[in-house]
Design a protein around this nucleic acid. Structure first.
Lengths: 225, 225
DNA sequence: AAGGAAGTTGACAAGATGGTCAACTTTCTT
DNA sequence: AAGAAAGTTGACCATCTTGTCAACTTCCTT
């Protein structure tokens, strides 16, 4: 993701990378600066809409310096995408066979909401990428998402088998949960209008979690006694 | 949304617009061509990412002709946004106080899914606009959305009052329904991966509607007899 | 301390992009 | 039929944008 300029593997001595201490630090720090700025800019404008001067400005580095670490805008973009794929399924760990459905799903919804809120730019960038057709998502990344989804769908099927939940199409249910939780961050402007608030606060997220969890678990209809 | 070039209100005679028959037709037809192409391009690239040559090419008109009808890229963009606002709350009509909740919500979910599917480009464009901060949505449009949401929330509150549904925060519930239904179009690539299909077919949409409706109405948990 | 590697930077080139326009054709009105 | 209005078009321009680079500074190793 950032290489050519320096052949770091030229270890002068032998096994131990001779120097490369503050060396690596400068590189790591600047790459991080750039990627952080890039996520912010890309998340609002997408690949084609983003201008690298904007990224440079947001990172505090001159443009030339950005090109010292990355050889093109697309390379920066791909690097940002690569990074966020790793946290895509983080919240999914709550969906595990040895937990009770109600508790697991509530934990999942909360984790997903918190993650989205705490990583707003990344979440928006991911949404942007998918919205534009997911052409920059690697096949491995997509395959990974498919596998994880299938595995977690198995957990739901197990719960249904054990009569802990009703029969349901687990994949569509996941979509329901994903969309609902991510909405608050991706479409914050719309959520604010709908909730009639100027900005979303913790209380709003709490109520969101509660509403999603309760509704999905218990449904809306009044149960005849 | 497209004016200067011709002062159409120069009615030579009097009250009746003298000519303006195939006149208006050419204009209307070309404006439509441009807007249709623009929705498609903007929906994938956003305002800044879209290139007007692309819009021109997609519309079948040379670039110069596009500028005959619109004076800037932003004007085209605003025109596309204006158009789609009108259909935003179409499906909402199903949520009315004189219907039974179960039936109304099912109809709503189906209508919303169908609308999104049948107007994919518009749906994605709207998502794109909100994702980027909704800076091109007019205050009136947002105010309209707020009013309609509040009104329909009132319907849900009425149902709760009448013990037809449980107490729920209607606004968060609407968000749940919006997000779930739009997901299939906005994030189609992700939905395909999750469902392990190459493209979404009618059967997938049907199952989506069924899953959303059933889950939201009845919940997941098995009811103790 | 010295030499080389790593990092910095502003200036620059090549091409893309938004937008204009004058000359032209088609369509309408009378 | 003829003049005017509407519409068409390719060439053109100013600006923006991506990406390069040579000269420079800083840092590391020995």
């Amino acid at each position: 993701m950032a290489e050519e300029p320096k052949t770091n593997n030229v270890t002068s001595g032998r096994g131990v990378p001779s120097h490369a201490v503050s060396d690596e630090r400068i590189r790591a720090r600047n790459v991080l600066k750039i990627l952080t700025a890039a996520v912010e800019v890309f998340s609002r404008k997408g690949l084609d809409g983003a201008r690298i001067v904007e990224i440079a400005k947001a990172s505090g580095l001159p443009k030339g310096n950005v090109y010292y670490y990355f050889s093109s805008k697309e390379e920066i973009y791909n690097a940002t995408i690569d990074r966020l794929i790793h946290s895509w399924d983080e919240a999914f760990r709550h969906i595990s066979a040895d937990r009770e459905p109600a508790e697991a799903i509530e934990a999942y919804v909360r984790a997903k909401l918190e993650h989205a809120r705490g990583n707003a730019a990344e979440t928006r960038l991911f949404a942007n990428e998918i919205l534009q057709g997911a052409e920059h998502l690697s096949l491995e990344a997509r395959e990974h998402m498919r596998r994880v989804t299938a595995e977690k769908a198995g957990v739901l099927d197990g719960w249904a088998e054990a009569r802990k939940i009703v029969r349901v199409d687990a994949r569509h249910l996941f979509i329901l949960l994903w969309s609902a939780t991510q909405f608050y961050v991706e479409f914050e402007a719309l959520a604010c209008d709908a909730l009639d608030v100027r900005q979303l606060r913790t209380a709003d997220y709490d109520l969101a979690a509660k509403t999603i969890t309760n509704t999905v678990l218990n449904g809306l209809l009044v149960r005849p006694e």
